[in-house]
Nucleic acid binder design. Structure first.
Lengths: 191, 191
DNA sequence: GTCCACATGTAACTGGTTACATGATTGG
DNA sequence: CCAATCATGTAACCAGTTACATGTGGAC
């Protein structure tokens, strides 16, 4: 149950229409909580029905017309409640690690190329984060909110760095692996 | 679409019943692909219907009776195909980072305690991984499959290490933060 | 006037979660 | 024989994804 709170945060940072929110989810917020425009419109409808946000009074006849929302006091309160509440971390899912484990059983054919591709993707993402850091957090301004936002960005940077390192490590491992090519011992399972 | 492949991998490592699989998902495999017993039974049904696995011939009258499965050649082939196919990384979701970003807007009340709790959880997880490493990967045996499995475990260890570091960093940040306690400027949003 | 990009939305589906139901086996 | 536990399963729900539908305004 985090999407509504992601939207409330975005709207508090700046009142927006659905499409503007979508675009902001493609950048900053989407880096750790992605959402498509369909999700966002659906959720905006719910949040308005619950009285947590409202459409900014302006001309909004209907379809094809921009409709901006702002957060109501009840929405801010709900966000503060959620932010401070204790929450268990969700179990972690990573298909790449799963594939590597599968590769240990059915062979490594094909996976190395994809590791390389992932490495490239992570390098691109890291570059993007560093660019944001350079632009938004120059060594000077550090109010309390800036420090928190910077902390979040650092998590992104360090995570990408971690993956790049790990993928390098993995590829090195492949370099001097016999490379079974196709399942190592196609019959027998092992404990 | 990874759960069926996680199950195929587990069954190739060792043919099992639903409950045994559930238990193994709570340990090893579940560390990067968790699943509940309901998911597993549902998926076992599908996989059997598709002819990728079969129930081991024994006495299996019905409910309350153990029923073990093994992977058929078609299942192994499908797993090899999936493992080698190129896959895009799923967008990444982390509620804790989202909460921190929200805290920058509505105040940090309550979140520090939860950061500490998460830190503890990650430390416990790390200890568990290290124990597995000590037990399963003593400095000797390193066949190709061992190396791959060890690589996956290292990812887990390094990820936990990363979070522990980052949470320490975050808590240090909180230590010398004014701590607004409740939303810093309860009215005005900011660009 | 037509086409294209902008903007908002609906519908159907998939995967994961929560709550509950049912039968078999075992220990007291 | 009763309760607890093991083992398998059903049902309802919720969040996220994919595909498609509809209206508006501006460029040509």
């Amino acid at each position: 149950m985090s999407l509504p709170h992601a939207i409330l945060t975005a709207l508090l940072e700046k009142p927006s229409s659905g499409l503007e929110l979508t675009r902001r989810f493609d950048r900053s917020i989407g880096y750790f909580w992605s959402a498509t425009h369909q999700q966002i419109y659906r959720e905006l409808g719910k949040l308005e029905a619950e009285g947590l946000i409202r459409a900014l009074p302006a001309e909004q006849p209907a379809r094809g017309q921009k409709k901006a929302y702002e957060v109501l006091p009840a929405g801010r309160a709900e966000l503060a409640r959620w932010t401070g509440a204790s929450q268990d971390p969700k179990p972690h899912r990573d298909a790449l690690l799963l594939r590597l484990r599968a590769a240990a059983v059915v062979g490594t054919a094909g996976i190395e190329a994809d590791l390389r591709r992932h490495l490239e993707l992570h390098e691109r993402q890291l570059a993007e984060y560093r660019e944001i850091e350079r632009r938004d957090f120059p060594p000077g301004r550090d109010g309390p909110e800036d420090r928190l936002r910077h902390l979040v960005l650092r998590a992104g940077i360090d995570l990408e760095t971690f993956w790049i390192q790990w993928l390098g490590h993995a590829l090195a491992e492949f370099a001097h692996l016999p490379d079974a090519g196709e399942g190592e011992r196609p019959g027998e399972p092992r404990a």
